[in-house]
Amino acid sequence: MEKDILDKLKKPSFSTPEGYFDKLKAHLEEIPGKEVEVSTWQKSRPYLVMAACFLLSLIVGTGILKMTTGQSVSDADQFYYDLGFADLIPVTYADPSLYENEGAAELSSEDIEDYLIATGVSVNRLAYSETLNGK
């Protein structure tokens, strides 16, 4: 009996507008006449679009990479070149007050200590060198 359910329901359940199939055939028979010659430009357009997208993502990606990584390779080379002369370049800028004492013919040891501390020498190292100098 169960097999009959599907057999019983096997009858048309859709209709179409009147005269539809005649109009459909007439419409479909026009297809060969509507055939359009595809130009070389239209054939190659999808590939050109893909190539343009690829190029654009390459340019944008390179730009973002450059902005986020900071120094370029050539800048890094220059940095290490400059580092070779580091002993000639002050570590920090000396406090301008050290140069304001125009009246002093000689620098006192205090001035020297202040300078060394300002340029980054640690207090411990300073104390050690004083010990070596017999202070």
């Binding site: 009858k11 048309p12 359940s13 859709f14 209709s15 507008p17």
Partner: peptide
């Protein structure tokens, strides 16, 4: 909503 469906309820269930 098909205006061209002219089956019965069982056929609707089937579809």
């Amino acid at each position: 909503e098909d205006p061209y469906f002219n089956g019965d309820e069982a056929q609707r269930l089937l579809l």
